[in-house]
Design a protein around this nucleic acid. Structure first.
Lengths: 202, 202
DNA sequence: ACCTGAACACCGTTCAAGT
DNA sequence: ACCTGAACACCGTTCAAGT
């Protein structure tokens, strides 16, 4: 243990309290739900005083916002990892839908935070950008297919909205327990098929 | 003021604290959001002690559950008032979708409570019944249309699920501010059309 | 720069006691 | 039967003071 490291030595107590708090918050979220999340408890688990979190997050909402952004990052990675532009449209959408659904099931509480409309003003800019990135990737798939004539004409944003809404609806049914997770994952092919071909007989 | 009405006289202080608390809770929900809802504040507004609500709701969640049931009642009434079995399928679905969307926009916080998956065990039975009634009405529309050959073959529950999910997704986009309420209401015809006819060109 | 300790103004819930 | 008052164990947030 070096005796003299004045400039870049560990900040006395914790080193990286911010990350520790975020990680702890996500664990609590997953294990006990949003309602059980307490800054004081988080501080206790991290071994710091109850006032310490205030140095890294101006208030509880700021921590929730940061957590939501973590969620958007993770979702973005999952989606771009799952997307394969070489796939035929229906297959491509199915794979994307499955990835979104899997994320929603695995991160139900986090997703709720991501969709919550109570962000602090200074976070909502990043939040909006994150949302744009997420729906943007879907919009690109739709626009590509449209150019190839595989999707009806019309405002790509409208079509993306409908597709996104359908996915979001199924995901929220699955995350909310209205639909068993396995049933949702098993039915995803049929859902995408119906979305593309419509409910009316051809 | 009659001096002797021992049996059916007003219960001393309030008369109907339960309803007053529920009404106050919904107003708070609407004006300040779920997070601002406090039993003590509600008691203050009703002019009773902070312990009084405990006589009518075993805890805060019980009040939220009761509120959610109020929401299901109101939604059920709105939907059955809007449904017109004489309408052609696409029109009938559009009208229903518009009613659901309008309810979601007007009762965003209430809807969140209705979909929350944290109900007390004894309330979740009524909650499940309320959900069944709601999706049941949609399922009937789908099954009717299917019998007339206006909708593709397949498990009516699956088709209902997709339709319900789409509506729920659009509603949650609108309620969450991701989609302007007017835009959602204006686009509803197109969404229903796309749902029926599919994204692929015919 | 980061953290502590005390303080303030809130919570939900419980329970004896009152009417 | 319904409500009160006090009590208990929590909160989030702020702020002087410490290192």
């Amino acid at each position: 243990m070096p005796a003299s490291r004045p400039a870049e030595s560990r900040p006395y107590h914790h080193g990286d309290l911010r990350s520790t708090l975020l990680a702890g918050a996500e664990r609590t979220l997953r294990e006990k739900g949003t309602g059980a999340l307490s800054l004081r408890e988080l501080a206790r688990e991290a071994g710091v005083s109850h006032a310490a979190p205030g140095r890294h997050f101006k208030d509880k909402q700021a921590l929730l916002d940061a957590l939501a952004l973590v969620g958007y990052d993770r979702l973005g990675q999952a989606l771009s990892a799952a997307d394969d532009p070489a796939l035929p449209l229906e297959r491509r959408l199915t794979v994307l839908a499955r990835a979104y659904l899997a994320f929603s099931i695995d991160n139900a509480e986090l997703l709720e935070l991501m969709y919550a409309r109570k962000h602090e003003p200074d976070a909502s800019e990043q939040m909006a950008a994150a949302v744009d990135r997420t729906v943007g990737s879907l919009e690109r798939v739709i626009a590509d297919a449209q150019e190839r004539g595989e999707i009806v004409a019309g405002d790509p944003q409208h079509l993306t909205l409908l597709t996104g809404a359908t996915l979001q609806g199924i995901a929220s049914f699955a995350a909310g327990g209205m639909l068993a997770p396995e049933a949702a994952l098993d039915g995803i092919e049929e859902f995408v098929h119906l979305l593309l071909h419509g409910l009316k007989p051809r």
